[in-house]
Every structure is written in C-alpha cells, then in structure tokens.
C-alpha cells in the first residue's frame, strides 16, 4: 500500500538553514547539510530544500549548496527557489535533487519544458497563498489569495505537473494547524498528489489533515528543529493516532511516554537507574 508521506522542509536564507515565522522573521538553525543529514538519519520520507534568500531570483539556485545537501539525503529531495530556466533545472537535477519546485507565478512554457525533458514527476508546482490582503499586495504576484487557489491548482494539473504543494503563508510558523478545509477541497478536485504545508505545530495537526483530506503528504519545518529524533517521535505519535507512516529505522519508541508537544518525557527514576548501556553494532551495508 502506498503510504502518506511526512516531508521535512529545510529553509535556507543566505546559506544558513532557518526557521520561519509568517514569511517574515527568521531564526537561524545551522548549516543546511547538517539538517539534511539528520532528517535522513531520523527517517524523514522526503526533504524539501527551499531557498528563501532575498537575492535568489537574481543569482539563481545555489548549485553547490544543493550538491552538499543532496549528498546527505538518501530520500527524495525537492529543491525550490529562484528557478526560472530549463538549464537551471538540469543543473539542479544533476546536483542530486529529484524534483524542482516552481512557485505561484506560473511560467507556462517552463512547465512544459521541464515536463518534456524530465517527466512530470520532476516538477512540483507550489502555490503560496494568504488570506491577508497586505501579504498579497506586498509580494508582487508570488502570493495569491485563498479564493484563487483552486483555480491555480486546476491550471497546474492541466499543465501536467507531477505534484502540487499548497502553502498558507499566513499560518507559516504560527503552529496553529493546517488549512484543512482548503486542502480537502483542492485534493478532492485534482488527481495529482497534493502536499500540504504551513502551520504544523505538533503531530495532532498532521493527523487532523490526514483525517480530513486526501492530501498525499504533509511537510513540516519548524517543529523538526531543536528536538532530538523529532521525525521518529512525530511518526510514533501519528502511529498512536492510527496513521501508520513508514517506520523510521529499527527504533520503535514502543514504551516511551511522549508529550503532546512530541517531546520525550522523562522516565521514572527506577527505570533510569536500571538502565545500562548496551553496545549495538553499526550495520555495514
């Protein structure tokens, strides 16, 4: 059976991985290749590497950075940010990415070229939308209004893109949950996989989206940082809520108490007292 996916986003601003709040404020996390290495090790299903540097449109994609991140990712890697030509797509895929993401302001000819040369599965159309008029006005067309999302989605499907990522910019970083109503409507109307992003603050939000919508994947960002084994803890929590995602390696977290914020709780003193260290040999592949 095809499983739903949990994707992890790595937002990069001027070469540094950041957490994002409302598409405006950013907190540094560290180097993008370290994020990629850890997400891969913790069993993420897919990585979205998104360059949000202010000058990305002028300088184009940072191919070297993509190469460094891709070398650590043995899961599918989707790159987005500053992609405007087929030649850039070729370089991005040669650097080790599997898909490119192209944003709202659809460049129809580029879509056709990418699908023709690399196949539909290599192209993800990204729709960033907001309910706030001020956001839409300030980004000269790259953010659309919530009412237009379905139109854009249907157009993107007609252009032959492989997947559709819809992201609510006004929920970004708020940890308030996904815009499930809209995701449900879009995923019902299109026949290509829909990826939902923007607003996940804990695993319950992902479960809500998987319950209410036909979305194929949910991408999370901020909640992956500053927490050891975050991916495995989230997947374990989702499993407890009845959503079996791909298990992240051998570790099962079967008996471990986890808080609603997806953090490991402290074990009892007697348990910790009994706990010894057992040597586990590393598997040689």
């Amino acid at each position: 059976m095809l499983l739903k996916r949990l994707g992890g986003s790595i937002l990069v601003r001027d070469g540094i991985a950041v957490q994002s709040f409302g598409f405006r404020r950013h907190l540094p996390v560290g180097s993008p290749e370290v994020s990629s290495e850890f997400l891969n090790r913790w069993g993420i299903d897919e990585i979205c590497l998104l360059d949000i540097s202010g000058n990305r449109m002028q300088r184009g994609p940072d191919i070297e950075m993509i190469r460094r991140v891709a070398a650590k990712a043995f899961v599918p890697l989707c790159y987005g940010g500053g992609v405007t030509s087929l030649d850039q797509v070729r370089q991005i895929i040669a650097a080790g990415a599997d898909k490119v993401l192209i944003r709202s302001k659809f460049i129809e000819s580029l879509f056709h070229e990418v699908v023709d040369s690399f196949g539909a599965q290599a192209l993800v159309a990204c729709i960033d939308y907001s309910s706030k008029k001020s956001d839409i006005a300030s980004r000269d067309g790259s953010i659309i209004s919530r009412d237009e999302v379905l139109d854009y989605a249907l157009r993107a499907e007609k252009f032959g893109v492989g997947e559709l990522l819809i992201q609510s910019t006004d929920r970004d970083g708020l940890a308030c949950g996904l815009d499930c109503d809209l995701i449900a409507e879009v995923s019902r109307r299109v026949q290509i996989p829909v990826i939902a992003m923007g607003g996940v603050g804990r695993s319950e939000h992902i479960a809500e989206c998987l319950n209410m919508t036909e979305a194929s994947a949910v991408v999370v960002g901020n909640i992956l940082n500053h927490c050891e084994h975050s991916v495995m803890l989230i997947k374990k929590q989702l499993q407890r809520m009845g959503h079996d995602l791909r298990s992240s390696g051998q570790c099962r977290y079967e008996l471990v108490p986890i808080s609603t914020e997806d953090r490991l709780l402290k074990r009892s003193e007697s348990y910790l007292d009994d706990l010894g260290f057992i040597k586990v040999d590393r598997e040689v592949i």
Binding site: M1, L2, L3
Partner: peptide, 12 residues
C-alpha cells in the same frame, strides 16, 4: 474513485 497518478511515495 479515479487513481491518483503519478504514484509518488513509499510502497512495499
């Protein structure tokens, strides 16, 4: 229900 294509994701 029509099938979603492409098949994208993890399968056994």
């Amino acid at each position: 229900h029509p099938v979603r294509r492409p098949q994208v994701g993890w399968n056994t």
